[in-house]
């Protein structure tokens, strides 16, 4: 396969656009479907194969299709799942690298410059801003998980409100049962229905029993993974 084609696929993925790589298994022919480009990359292909490629844009993974007695591999190159961590606290320092290992593109939001530093969080996107000021830019899609960890309602709750208005597949909020009850009450005051508020996992994380920051991070990440596959 030509490096240029693979490079175009990786760049589209970084731009958060799904593309489909089509490889002949009987020859060295390769195509890349990028619907945002004109032409779309499928020139010269029969209609049935084109239709298969466009269909594949809507899902993840790879499959083999046959056309005119030849076999082809269809592979969807999707943008990665994303995790938004609100609150640059000790638990976040464990959660962020773990989430990256699990394949989540991770962004950290905290308006306090002393907390969200590149020294404490090397190599990740840090937004030193109030969640209410950035939530419009940070697109929360059905491939996004959000977890609030700051323990400060001024920071956590605007983020939770934005997540509740989105298709985010997971919303978690750190805090005790008592804290969580107060949080739900305040969010209800903003007009959120009880059924909507049930989307928030709180107290956050699967109950693994651990209390150390890294152990809580594992419990949160485990709950995110579970939520992602429960949906499929």
């Amino acid at each position: 396969m030509r490096a240029e084609l693979l490079d175009a696929a990786v760049r589209a993925q970084a731009d958060k656009r799904p593309v489909v790589l089509l490889r002949s298994l009987d020859s060295a022919e390769r195509w890349l479907l990028d619907p945002s480009e004109t032409p779309d990359g499928l020139e010269g292909l029969p209609d049935t194969l084109r239709a298969h490629c466009y269909e594949a844009l809507k899902r993840d993974g790879a499959s083999v299709v046959e056309s005119d007695g030849q076999r082809y591999l269809l592979q969807t190159i999707s943008p990665p799942y994303r995790l938004l961590v609100v609150g640059a606290v000790h638990i976040a320092q464990a959660l962020v690298p773990m989430a990256r290992i699990a394949g989540y593109a991770t962004t950290l939001v905290d308006p306090r410059p002393a907390f969200a530093t590149p020294q404490r969080f090397p190599g990740i996107e840090i937004l030193n801003a109030w969640p209410q000021d950035v939530m419009d830019e940070v697109s929360l899609t059905s491939r996004t998980a959000l977890v609030t960890l700051s323990h400060d309602p001024k920071i956590d709750e605007p983020a939770l409100a934005a997540a509740l208005r989105s298709d985010a597949f997971y919303i978690g909020a750190l805090g005790s049962k008592k804290n969580h009850a107060g949080r739900l009450e305040r969010l209800a005051g903003l007009g959120f229905e009880a059924a909507t508020l049930e989307r928030i996992a709180g107290p956050v994380g699967l109950d693994l029993g651990g209390r150390a920051p890294a152990e809580i991070a594992i419990a949160i990440l485990a709950q995110i993974v579970k939520a992602r596959y429960a949906r499929e």
């Binding site: 490096a3 490079d7 990786v10 993925q13 970084a14 190159i77 990256r100 394949g103 090397p122």
Partner: peptide
């Protein structure tokens, strides 16, 4: 804490890495 440059979980990372080696 050091973060890994690549994992076996994210196909994008493997493709990027393959391209990086090729470019080198």
């Amino acid at each position: 804490m050091a973060t890994p440059a690549v994992t076996d979980k994210d196909p994008g990372d493997i493709l990027s890495l393959a391209l990086e080696w090729h470019a080198a």
